[in-house]
Structures are given as structure tokens and as C-alpha cells.
């Protein structure tokens, strides 16, 4: 199945950010990122300025996609958790609601056990938000769709993007 687009509205965005902020505090992590499986950055919390979030999102999605490929090769549907151990900083990667990736960067102030525990709780919270997003798009598809701000894009708007 391939969706034409993924949309995140203000309300859900705030909920996701809230969950990420709580996770970051509860897990004593440096930073947490929520990434779409196609490599788009969705939201983040913590000391995010010290990381290149766009590169992080793209490489994490590539990492998860490659690991998924490996899982299928040995007959698994997916490896739902990945852990990369560094000398100072470590990365914990997990799948949320089958469509997003939760990335937690932590150091010696936390531990793998604590991160795993807190990630579980945060994932459940975020799954609820993704369900809410699905319901909204279903209502939109069945009932009166919200007017898209892009339906009125003109050729001039598009050309203006490419003018030097």
C-alpha cells in the first residue's frame, strides 16, 4: 500500500511533541526524534540543535529500511528495535505505529534498560495520536474534505519557486 501523502495537523503535532518531551525527560536522554519511515523529520525534543536533524532522519530511515530487508531475508517481518552503541553516545531506534521511527540519543546519564522502558510507554501514547490522525483523514475522505491550501497553487506560484 502506498499513501499519496502524510499530513500532520497542529493538534496532533502538539501531542507528538508533548510525548517526545516527556520521553526525553523520563529517559534522561540527550535528544529524541520522530521520523517518518521515508526519511522525513516529523518532530523532536531535547538538545536537537547539536544534531543535523535532516541527515539524521534520512540515514535513520535508510538504516531501518536496510534492517527490514535483512529481517525479511531470514523470514522475520521486521526487527522492531535497533541499538547502536558508541563510546560516549548511543542510539536506540524503534518503530511506532508501523509508520514512524522513534530515535533516542543518550549517554552515560541514562541506560539502555531505562530507555527501552520509557520508549514503550511513549510509543503507546504516540500510537494513539497516529490513530487520531487516521480517523481525521478517514472523516475527510468520507465527508466534506477540508479545503487544501494547495488546490489554489497557480503556475506562477510554482514558477516563482524556481526563479533565482
Amino acid at each position: 500500500m502506498s499513501l499519496a501523502r502524510m499530513e500532520v495537523y497542529e493538534e496532533e503535532f502538539r501531542h507528538l511533541e508533548g510525548s517526545l518531551r516527556r520521553l526525553r525527560l523520563d529517559a534522561n536522554a540527550k535528544a529524541v526524534f520522530l521520523i517518518d519511515r521515508n526519511g522525513q523529520h516529523i518532530a523532536a525534543a531535547g538538545d536537537t540543535d547539536q544534531f543535523d536533524s535532516t541527515s539524521l532522519a534520512s540515514l535513520t530511515a535508510g538504516n531501518v529500511a536496510a534492517t527490514d530487508g535483512l529481517a525479511k531475508l531470514i523470514g522475520e517481518s521486521e526487527f522492531s528495535v535497533l541499538f547502536h552503541e558508541g563510546q560516549r553516545d548511543h542510539i536506540h531506534i524503534s518503530i511506532v505505529a508501523r509508520r514512524a521511527i522513534l530515535l533516542v540519543i543518550f549517554d552515560e546519564r541514562s541506560s539502555l534498560g531505562l530507555v527501552r522502558l520509557r520508549v514503550k510507554r511513549a510509543s503507546t501514547e504516540m500510537e494513539g495520536v497516529f490513530e487520531q490522525m487516521d480517523q481525521k483523514s478517514e472523516v475527510g475522505a468520507q465527508g466534506e474534505p477540508e479545503p487544501s491550501p494547495f488546490s489554489e497553487i497557480t503556475d506562477e506560484d510554482i514558477d516563482a519557486l524556481f526563479s533565482e
Binding site: 501523502r5 499530513e7 500532520v8 503535532f13
Partner: peptide, 11 residues
């Protein structure tokens, strides 16, 4: 898949 973030106003 185009990702539209209405909160951050990004496509």
C-alpha cells in the same frame, strides 16, 4: 509520499 506538516508549515 509528500509529507505536509501544517504545524511547521512545511511540504
Amino acid at each position: 509520499m509528500t509529507f505536509i506538516n501544517y504545524a511547521a508549515r512545511e511540504i
